[in-house]
Design a protein around this nucleic acid. Sequence first.
DNA 1: CTGAAAGCGCTTACAG
DNA 2: CTGAAAGCGCTTACAG
Lengths: 333, 333
Amino acid sequence: MRNRLKDVAERAGVSVKTVSNVVNGYAHVRPETRARVEEALAELNYRPNLSARSLRSGRTGVIALAVPELDIPYFAELARHVVDAAATHDWTVLIDQTGGVPERERVVADGVRGQLIDGLIFSPLALTGAELARRADPRPMVLLGERDDHGPLDHVAVDNVAAAREITTHLIASGRRRIAAIGAQRATSGASASMRLTGYKQALAAEGIRFDPRRVASAANWHRADGATAMARLLESGVRPDAVFCFNDTLALGAMRALHEHGLRVPDDVAVAGFDDIEDGRFSVPTLTTVVPDKAEIARLAVELLAKRLATGSDGAPAELTAGYRVDLRESA
Amino acid sequence: MRNRLKDVAERAGVSVKTVSNVVNGYAHVRPETRARVEEALAELNYRPNLSARSLRSGRTGVIALAVPELDIPYFAELARHVVDAAATHDWTVLIDQTGGVPERERVVADGVRGQLIDGLIFSPLALTGAELARRADPRPMVLLGERDDHGPLDHVAVDNVAAAREITTHLIASGRRRIAAIGAQRATSGASASMRLTGYKQALAAEGIRFDPRRVASAANWHRADGATAMARLLESGVRPDAVFCFNDTLALGAMRALHEHGLRVPDDVAVAGFDDIEDGRFSVPTLTTVVPDKAEIARLAVELLAKRLATGSDGAPAELTAGYRVDLRESA
DNA sequence: CTGAAAGCGCTTACAG
DNA sequence: CTGAAAGCGCTTACAG
């Protein structure tokens, strides 16, 4: 059974143009004509061929979201919000996982998708702002996540320095002095790590606590296993923290696990704070004190930025939008 | 800057056909010609227009994965494996979230995507096998998740009854007798719940333990919050379980939280077992004993089934493939 | 308010 | 080994 516009037109006894008008909701179609067309549309179960439509119109109605990994809860939750926000524009979201691997990030930035997508929302880990700026793909791209080197690119972020400072200040205010940090990374892996480290240092300085680099544990990745390893390393190195600020929640959950294995209680012996507000942290034992970025707002702003570029043909100065956050005090600190 | 096949052809001084041959890797192009074309391709930064290509070929190279929610860790982990498996076929994956809402599931099954996708991998919750079988979309679809009523449809599943029986038997073998179950659902929400309940009952019967319906708590959804609520309800109802089999890991994590809030220790007072092997359960305190379905195999089998349909033009009897699982004994039971 | 026709960029028989 | 040309299904000026 064929069911092209042409077949519908023949069945309804009108021209292809008229069927197209009805399908696309244009006004100025006589009610009787419209009814006949709609009947034919239903009878043939007509579905527009999106390839043909986009070949003609230059738009596919598909945007891509590229994140390091979908099974990192933060990105899964973010993806869900992006899908929801995109739905308000009738856009479909195609999800790319880069693994944070430079080569795969480059491929994403350079538009491997060919003309499959209208635009890209990208959370890069490895690529620098300069590399991103000289991408070969002309389609609009919105960056997610904090960067210190963003070139002339739209981007949406949360004030990571302020948030990290605020939650560290809370640890200090609750009487902790030997505060460790987990999650430091070499500068190229996005800037979240360095900004959260900066906020941590600022809080210490403001309260007159000397920064001790031995209390900072790096983590190449931010999975639970990395948090557990880093915490164990810290404990076994002789540093005796009474609190630890983990740069994300999965690190924190891993750190809590390691503390448990070392016979230490949270928060009695060591207070633990995270960043991201993933669902796990609301049900862990103990529940996790964390920074709650407004993920829905991040997604909404990113999608709207893309919509604006798509509407204006990519003109205009790059936008730098900031989404809100709050610190949620729970049981762990 | 235009960069169609035609522009490349003009620059290289050959016909469009020859450029197409080079782009698509067909043999029989003279080396000098190939070199000239490749140079022109690079100079113009040529990207094929996927809309045009698929309008012509009838294939888009995109498959869809439809799951209830991406921020349910099991589905996020599964999605990651599907994306990986699809990559081996050079396919891109577009992800749909249905929320388990009947109307949205119907829209997915009936192929709203128009001709955007070549096939669909679908994990339905609300739709019955009969409803799925009479879908309006001719493109191949592979079902994920256990069903008792699968019509003539390809599907990939894990033996849920056996797995549930096995983990419940472990609880009994470790000396528990008052074993509760959390996660029962009315039949329409997929069949995972009813199959896991069946396996649970079979294990009790095999060991001569009377089934007590008061020990079964239902959960409309399977999030952590639902597990916590169900566990609390069970504890407050006067049932005094010494173990609980939760129908998935997020329920189990929520249940452990509720047990903690009621001052009960896991596993000393109450043993807890889950299903799914999400990453959280490997780092929770205590770590979670669970059924480990082979998610990579599920994804691989589903993608291969789709590939086969796509290759044979959808002919052939429906396939019913079973992926493996194992029970992983950890600290909670 | 409706129709006939061009053209989006590609692939693919068909010739040569 | 290479070229000229048709056609995939749609949208959109252009006529009427």
